[in-house]
C-alpha cells in the first residue's frame, strides 16, 4: 500500500526543489491510478488464464487496454454516485471498489461470487459500491443508466450516474431515446462511450456513419468531448468537467473515450479483423499503464515503490484466483432462490 496513501504523498511532496509545482499532487493521483489500473490488468490476465484452464465458462470479455477509462472516471466520483456498464465489466467493478475475490469467484461460478455464481462474468452488482451491473444486452445499460440518474433527480440527492457503453452500442436506438429523455429531464448522467474501435469484429468506421461520436448527443444539446482514453489524467480532467456539469443540474454530458482493447471481443475471438501489428503498436506506444509508470519514475517515485505495488497487486489477484477455486459451487437449492422477492 505504498502509493496513494498520505505518507507516500508527503514523501514525494518533500522530495526536492526541482519538482514542478503541483507535481506532488499529480504524483499522488498517478500513484493511485497506477495501482488501480495495474490491478485491473493483472486481474484480467488471470481471468484469461483461468478461462484457458476451463475454470471460467461462457462469455468472458476482458478489459485489458482500456483501464485508464474507468480508473480516471472513478476518481471524479463521490460516494453514492452510480456506475453502470455493459458486459465488459470486470474493470468497472474493481474500480468501484468491489472485492477482487467476489468478482473472480463469480467468474468461476462459485457461491463466493457477487451473485452467488448465478450471474457470471456479465452480471454482477454491488449496491453498496454504487455498481448497478454488468448488463448483457448491448445498449440496455444506457436506458437503465438514465434510470439511475432519474432516481437521483427524483430524490434530489445530488448524485451523478455514469453510463458506460461501447462505440458499437452507441448506434442503438435506445441510446438516442435515452439521450432525449436525459436532456428533456436534465438528468445527472454522464454518458461515456468507450470507443475501443471494434464492436466485436466490426470497426467503428464500418458501423457508424457518425465520425465524431462525442457529437452524437448534440441534437439534444448534450455537450460532448473526445478524450484520449489511454491517458488517465486526460480522462480524469474531462470526467471532472462532465461530473461537475451534471452535479450543477445542467443535465447530461457525453464523453467519447478513445481507447483500445488488446484482447479479442471475448475469449473466442479469432482476431481476423485487425492486424497483429496494429495491436502491437498500440501496446507499445499508447499503453495507459506504461504511460503512468513512466511519469511516476520521471516524477521521482522510486522503482522499488512501483515494484511493491506490482507485488501487492499480484498478491491480491492470486488470492482472488485461489478463493475463486476454493469457494464451493452454489448449493443445488440455490437454483430456486432469488427468482422473486418473497412477500410473506
Amino acid at each position: 500500500m505504498a502509493l496513494g496513501t498520505d505518507s507516500a504523498a508527503k514523501r514525494r511532496n518533500g522530495r526536492g526543489k526541482d519538482s514542478p509545482p503541483g507535481a506532488g499532487h499529480n504524483q499522488d493521483i498517478l500513484g493511485k491510478a497506477y495501482r488501480e489500473m495495474l490491478l485491473i490488468r493483472r486481474f484480467e490476465e488471470k481471468a484469461g488464464q483461468l478461462y484457458g484452464m476451463g475454470l471460467i465458462g461462457g462469455f468472458c470479455h476482458l478489459y485489458i487496454g482500456q483501464e485508464a477509462v474507468v480508473v480516471g472516471m472513478q476518481m471524479t466520483l463521490k460516494e453514492g454516485d452510480e456506475v453502470i456498464t455493459s458486459y465488459r465489466d470486470h474493470g468497472h467493478m474493481l474500480a468501484t471498489g468491489m472485492e477482487a475475490r467476489g468478482v473472480m469467484a463469480e467468474l468461476t461460478g462459485r457461491i463466493g461470487g457477487y451473485s452467488k455464481g448465478k450471474g457470471g462474468s456479465m452480471h454482477m452488482f454491488s449496491r453498496e459500491k454504487g455498481f448497478y451491473g454488468g448488463h448483457g444486452i448491448v445498449g440496455a445499460q444506457v436506458s437503465l443508466g438514465i434510470g439511475l440518474a432519474f432516481a437521483n433527480w427524483y430524490r434530489e440527492d445530488g448524485k451523478v450516474a455514469l453510463a458506460y457503453f461501447g462505440e458499437g452500442a452507441s448506434n442503438q436506438g435506445q441510446v438516442y431515446e435515452s439521450f432525449n429523455l436525459a436532456a428533456l429531464l436534465k438528468l445527472p448522467c454522464v454518458f461515456i462511450i468507450e470507443n475501443n474501435r471494434y464492436g466485436m469484429g466490426t470497426s467503428v468506421e464500418r458501423a457508424s456513419a457518425s465520425k465524431d461520436l462525442s457529437k452524437n448527443g448534440a441534437p439534444w444539446g448534450i455537450p460532448g468531448e473526445q478524450v484520449n482514453g489511454m491517458d488517465v489524467l486526460a480522462v480524469k480532467a474531462a470526467g471532472e468537467r462532465a461530473v461537475a456539469h451534471c452535479r450543477a443540474g445542467k443535465g447530461p454530458y457525453l464523453l467519447e473515450m478513445q481507447t483500445y482493447r488488446y484482447r479479442g471481443h471475448s475469449m473466442s475471438d479469432p482476431a481476423k479483423y485487425r492486424t497483429r501489428e496494429e495491436v502491437q503498436k498500440m501496446r507499445e506506444q499508447n499503453d495507459c499503464i506504461e504511460m503512468v509508470r513512466k511519469l511516476l519514475l520521471e516524477g521521482g517515485t522510486p522503482e522499488a515503490e512501483l515494484k511493491a505495488v506490482d507485488d501487492e497487486v499480484k498478491a491480491i489477484v492470486q488470492d482472488s484466483a485461489d478463493f475463486a477455486q476454493s469457494s464451493p459451487e452454489p448449493d443445488e437449492s440455490e437454483l430456486w432462490t432469488d427468482v422473486l422477492v418473497e412477500t410473506r
Binding site: S115, H123, M124, G134, T337, D338, V341
Partner: peptide
Amino acid sequence: TLYMSGGQL
C-alpha cells in the same frame, strides 16, 4: 436482475 444478482437487486 434479482436472480442474476444473487438476490441483491
